[in-house]
């Protein structure tokens, strides 16, 4: 049974536009022009219970719009939505009790009070029995190891600590579905890793369905068994990250440490791109099929101390997909 079913969903925003300067401000007083911005176009999606789906796309691609539509926060222009058997826009309490949303840049915690106060408030709002509340709280506190921070006012917590509290606040009522909008944004590597482990644990142990957006490819790589690439409001890819990479990670990164400096006369085979050239170091990008040819050429031309061959960074692959647009999937 699908937990999310989206059919031909479209969202068009009406954005006011104003010419710059004083004249533009005066004109806008009399007549305001409106620009129509297509945030989502004929979007289709089906998510099964227990899946962990990653939504990736550049800024303005429509990821957050999709999350807001699925939560019922904004209304679609056309198309149909079914989330947990409800129409999200109706904002039924029975629907809102079954999901949680965490927006990385918008907090639900009470700024001047300890996070425990927000947790207790959520206990009342969601009608969580005392026993279940205590059990969940202890479990999440143990997973994050933050028991000493529960009574510290939120304003005195670090960004990473705050995000952990946001996640706890969102999960205390045992939602079946969680929407995460950039949950690791701005966090250091350690905090990112802790949050990823936590989410993986929640998904595996409790079978909670997670739909997350992220700009960090590490989030998607470590967490999601399904990746959706979205650009300019349209779905470009829906499948595993491995398949996406097999198809588009056609390049290898080759880093060479040289024993002696090479001049400008180094001849590289056609198709090889030099990303960085220093007297003792070369960073090259080469099509998979030409790696052997490149190595032979380098061995003939220079003395090497070390060589490292790696897959192309995922971020670069995705960036190339965004730039290329739909034709790469044609």
């Amino acid at each position: 049974m699908s937990i999310i079913q989206v059919t031909n969903l479209s969202k068009i925003y009406q954005r006011p536009v104003k010419e710059p300067g004083f004249k533009g401000s005066l004109k806008a007083l009399v007549k305001r022009s409106v620009l129509q911005k297509k945030a989502l176009t004929d979007f289709n999606l089906r998510v099964e219970e227990g899946e962990l789906v990653g939504l990736i796309g550049p800024n303005g691609a429509g990821k957050t719009t999709l999350v807001k539509l699925l939560c019922g926060i904004i209304q679609p222009t056309s198309g149909s939505l079914d989330v947990l058997g409800f129409k999200p826009g109706e904002l039924k309490d029975a629907f809102r009790r079954q999901y949680a949303v965490v927006m990385g840049q918008k907090s639900q915690l009470w700024w001047d009070l300890p996070a425990l106060d927000t947790f207790r408030l959520n206990k009342e709002i969601y009608g969580i029995p005392e026993e279940k509340f205590k059990k969940n709280l202890h479990e999440y506190v143990d997973l994050f190891g933050i028991s000493e921070l529960l009574q510290v006012p939120v304003r005195n917590l670090s960004l990473g600590e705050r995000m952990k509290m946001e996640l706890m606040a969102a999960l205390l009522h045992d939602p079946r579905l969680i929407f995460l909008d950039e949950p690791t944004i701005g966090l250091d590597a350690i905090a990112q890793k802790q949050i990823r482990l936590f989410l993986k644990e929640i998904n595996t142990r409790r079978q909670v369905t997670i739909l997350m957006t992220s700009h960090y490819m590490d989030d998607i790589r470590h967490l999601c068994n399904r990746t959706i690439v979205i650009n300019e409001g349209e779905k470009m890819y829906d499948g595993s990250l491995e398949n996406l990479l097999t198809r588009f990670q056609g390049q290898r990164d080759v880093q060479v440490i040289l024993s002696e400096p090479v001049g400008l006369g180094l001849n590289l085979p056609d198709g090889v791109t030099c990303r960085e050239r220093q007297p003792y170091r070369l960073h090259l990008q080469v099509p998979r099929s030409q790696v052997k040819e490149l190595l032979s050429s380098l061995l003939l031309q220079c003395e090497m101390d070390d060589i490292r061959i790696e897959d192309e960074e995922i971020g670069n692959v995705i960036e190339r997909i965004y730039r290329s647009g739909r034709e790469v999937f044609a």
Binding site: G72, I73, L91, R96, R97, Y99, M103, N122, I125
Partner: peptide
Amino acid sequence: EGRFAKYLAKPV
């Protein structure tokens, strides 16, 4: 500022 979602996403 788009922060009203905090009231809409909860059963209140």
